[in-house]
Design a binder for these strands. Structure first.
Lengths: 338, 338
DNA sequence: TTAGATCGTGTTACCGATAACATTAACATA
DNA sequence: TATGTTAATGTTATCGGTAACACGATCTAA
């Protein structure tokens, strides 16, 4: 591997002079600069950023830690993050925690040893507080994405979960539904609590009774088994509409209902939080509350890099992105007597 | 930041002894080991992998360079790659080339300076040969994903593009279609050529005429404008079925047809290469030739790491993954006189 | 003419680990 | 008892850059 010393030797200058040419810093005569550049090209020299990082104490790398890149929300978020990182001169490492604290811990250790300059963190839940405090202890800046964590102050980019949920449930109510189920993520995740709150508020605002049997906490991951929904479907008065708290749940539910020969939306209306990326374009089907996923990632990186480069205000910044209700085919007016 | 010397000092041993404890190498008395470990925990010490990389000459990082993470095929592939990398002790950087050689070049430079241990490379096209040769020059192992590049010998994981295309087109033919259009990716991409060849072969095997007006090369990206399809739709004898060479094209085409009030599949059958991940579960609609995307990434990393660690045979290995035809709603028998 | 400023470049130390070799003490063996 | 082993640890050099400071040569202004 060619090093800066090889260049220096061949150009008959010191390594420092070569370094100055590489970084275009300090004063160099045009003549020397040209000579050094020529030799660097001849030898296909590429500076070793590991060595540079060791002395400058910055890696120009960020870590994006999400729950699952195959969730379309995070897919698009990741694209936004990568675009922003690239534009700002940072590389992006990524990891999937699968909503699992143990896996999250493994990534935390990697983050610490890799000495990334900052982290975009979609925490697995409230218990992630430990991991975030570890980042603080090690002075690694981070931005929370999508989910807040009680006890943690930081920059963050989140959505209007409560508002969005309320809006979506009111849409269902407007269609005549009164028995509306909520299939939710873990209660230890802020968005799940907020979506619950929005659901509850919509019922109250419309003088509908709250029935705890209509609320299930099944986690934000895809369901492994259609029977998980049975408690809901076998109620004496089953729901006529289901609000899934995220897209994975909705997809699982639609699949489960299909396997049970329950037609959507004729027999059951379905709606959920988060859209499906390109899929929606293909065959717009599910009524959703969409969030600007790309912006979550893009703005998240901007906040983070501002913080890293000390361009940020001392106060923590909290970006709250708007949701958008998109009504499609999966929600239909309730037919009387069905 | 706590360094190995801080630990050494506090434990009253040399840095080397601490290093041995960290790496569990060499001989250390249990007593010393325990003492050092205790102090490492007390001080929240995490070894600096940048420093380690500089001396060991390995970063334990891989780069995954794909065209677009939001393409469901690459999303799932990325997940497979990350899982495998994590299991094998590697971190994963990723980049989106957008099928663009210039962007690919920028990532190449990053790859070279970052000194990653290997690269998973889905090349933008045949012209990527230059970039791949640069990797060879710098002795950076790589595995080609999904696409071959003439003039490049390497490990690779690819699909049966020709076979899959033939199968899909024969499915359309079996439904009675004789005017079948191909909307293809750039001819400078191996998969596009192979899918073209499969298309052609299917026609020949079934004694159908080949009409070059039915073939369009629009690239593998999403179409910006529905009018791009006009040359096809405004033919005297327009097609009754369209084979889109990838999922992005199919999604764009379905969208374009919708905007033109052409119903799928009643007025036009559509099928494509590559599935849509979770979307397919949601609302299975498009008939596709699916590829095992997760395996592309997972096996790709395995090949790569074998190569990096010199566990691979000297010969290049070429994994060819099978395709699977999944017939869904977007393809229907041709009605006579329509 | 001469001191001080400026320009262009070099020297040295250091970032935080590890490889290779050196050293010491305790132990084993002849 | 002398010598060779072995276990446990230390010393030194090095990975490939950059920061900080040093230095000589040329230029500028009094």
């Amino acid at each position: 591997m060619v090093t800066i010393y090889d260049i220096a030797k061949k150009a008959q200058v010191s390594a420092m002079t070569v370094s100055r040419v590489i970084n275009n810093s300090g004063r160099i005569s045009d003549q020397t600069k040209a000579k050094v550049k020529k030799i660097m090209e001849e030898l296909n020299y590429v500076p070793n950023s590991t060595a540079r990082s060791l002395v400058t104490q910055e890696t120009k790398m960020l870590t994006l830690l999400i729950t699952d890149i195959t969730n379309p929300f995070y897919t698009t978020l990741a694209r936004g993050a990568e675009d922003a990182a690239m534009q700002l001169g940072y590389k992006l490492l990524f990891g999937n925690s699968d909503e699992n604290l143990q896996k999250e811990k493994e990534y935390l250790d990697i983050i610490l040893s890799t000495r990334v300059d900052g982290v975009l963190f979609a925490p697995a839940g409230d218990a992630s507080v430990e991991h975030l405090n570890a980042l603080k202890r090690h002075s690694i800046p981070f931005v929370l994405l999508d989910r807040e964590v009680p006890g943690i102050e930081s920059d963050m980019v989140i959505g209007e979960s409560k508002e969005g949920a309320r809006q979506l449930v009111e849409h269902l109510i407007a269609l005549g539904h009164t028995r509306i189920a909520l299939v939710n993520g873990s209660n230890s995740i802020s968005t799940a609590r907020q979506r619950y709150a929005g659901y509850w508020e919509a019922l109250k605002l419309n003088d509908l009774p709250f029935d705890e049997n209509l609320v299930m906490e099944l986690g934000y991951k895809q369901l492994e088994d259609a029977s998980l929904l049975d408690p809901l479907l076998q109620l004496d008065r089953p729901p006529t509409a289901i609000f899934a708290a995220n897209n994975f749940l909705a997809a699982s539910i639609v699949g489960a209902l299909r396997s049970k020969q329950i037609r959507v939306p004729e027999q059951m209306s379905i709606a959920c939080f988060d859209d499906f990326g390109i899929l929606s374009q293909l065959n717009p089907f599910l009524t959703v509350v969409a969030q600007p996923a790309y912006q979550f990632g893009y703005l998240g990186v901007q906040l983070l890099v501002d913080r890293i480069q000390n361009k940020a205000a001392a106060d923590w910044r909290k970006i709250i992105l708007p949701t958008e209700l998109i009504c499609r085919e999966s929600t239909k007016p309730l037919l009387t007597n069905s």
